[in-house]
Simulated scan of single mutants.
Amino acid sequence: MFARLTKYRWQYTMIVPAVVLLFLFSYVPMVGIQVAFKDFHIGLTMWNSPWVGFENFSFLQDDQFWVVVGNTLYIAVLKFVFGFPAPIILALLINELRHTGFKRFVQSVSYLPHFFSWIVVAYMLQSLLTLDGGIVNQLIVNMGGEPVFFLGSTEWFRPMIVASGLWKEVGWNTILYLAAITTIDPQLYEAAKVEGAGKLAQMRSITLPGILPTISIVLILSMPSLIAVGMDQIYPLMNPANQPVADVLDTYILRSGLQQGYFGMATAVGLLSSIVSLILVLCTNQLSRKFNGEGLW
């Protein structure tokens, strides 16, 4: 063991800050889980608050909570169905570009939106989609249609969330797949060409199997997003008009905990969400290991 520590001392030194940050911001706050089982109010501490057992889990009998769960799952499934394969497809297409300068340009342009905050993206969407002077509604009117209240529409809110998420993150998420593609032996492609395989056949038989382990790892890591659909994206765009479809677990926790002062209930919702996310990760990892032999552990 000491020989291994000595051999890889610099690698271990480099990951120490990340381990410390993970411990401080992910494990130490877990002490606060006890608030889910206590009657916590401002003026008390989580140590001297009285225990109330499972009273804070009474939200499971609230119809509004299950509406929120439905909204969360609906948006999560849409984002997963469209968002998970999109960077894989984009990485495959970028990999086929032969002009180096154009390839770098496409990569840079696709990466750029990732560095915009969701507040900036929300402002851009409001500027584009607003009824008063929005470019999109102006185009609709010029083509003879009626303006659409996109920002307050329960029909357009979910497509808007999915589309903006794709635009912002699809390029950034291709980085892992492009890196995985570079590790594939070029001789495999040369052999495939000799056998008469076209681009699609090479992509299907060489590239996709070559990046399958990376796809499996990303799939496992993306499972918690089925519960946490991104409050930083949804909250700036949520308003009373679209709230029936925009209210998700994260906004429900924020509203219940910080705005209404039900700290115990908000903690209980967060705890339950974390348990479900953990179960999803464990199950996905087990299925991944069973079907292709790759997993996080």
Rank of each mutant, 00 (worst) to 15 (best):
M1N: 08
F2S: 10
L5E: 00
R9N: 05
T13Q: 02
M14C: 07
I15M: 15
V16M: 07
V16Y: 05
L22T: 12
F25S: 07
S26L: 09
S26W: 06
Y27W: 13
P29C: 05
M30W: 00
V31F: 15
Q34W: 06
A36W: 09
G43S: 13
W47C: 00
W47F: 11
P50R: 13
V52T: 10
V52M: 02
S58E: 09
V68Q: 06
V69Y: 05
G70H: 10
T72V: 12
I75M: 15
I75F: 12
V77A: 07
F82W: 09
F82C: 05
F84Q: 01
P87V: 06
A91H: 03
A91D: 04
L92D: 01
I94C: 06
H99T: 12
T100D: 12
R104A: 13
V106P: 00
V106T: 12
S110V: 14
H114K: 11
W118V: 08
W118R: 07
Y123H: 03
M124Y: 11
L129Y: 13
D132P: 04
D132Y: 12
D132L: 07
I135G: 03
L139A: 15
V141W: 09
G145P: 02
E146Q: 14
P147I: 08
V148R: 15
F150I: 08
R158T: 09
P159I: 14
P159C: 12
V162R: 04
K168T: 11
W172S: 01
T174D: 01
I175R: 00
I175G: 00
Y177L: 03
P186V: 10
Q187D: 10
Y189E: 03
Y189H: 11
A191K: 13
A197G: 02
K199C: 01
L200Q: 01
A201Q: 12
Q202R: 14
I206M: 10
T207D: 07
L208Q: 04
G210M: 11
P213R: 13
I215A: 11
S216M: 15
I220D: 08
M223T: 14
S225M: 13
S225P: 01
L226A: 11
G230R: 03
I234T: 05
P236W: 14
M238V: 08
A241F: 09
A246Q: 04
Y252M: 11
R255E: 03
S256I: 00
G257I: 07
L258W: 10
G261C: 04
G261Q: 03
F263K: 01
F263D: 00
M265I: 11
L271D: 04
L271R: 00
L280P: 02
G295P: 01
G295M: 05
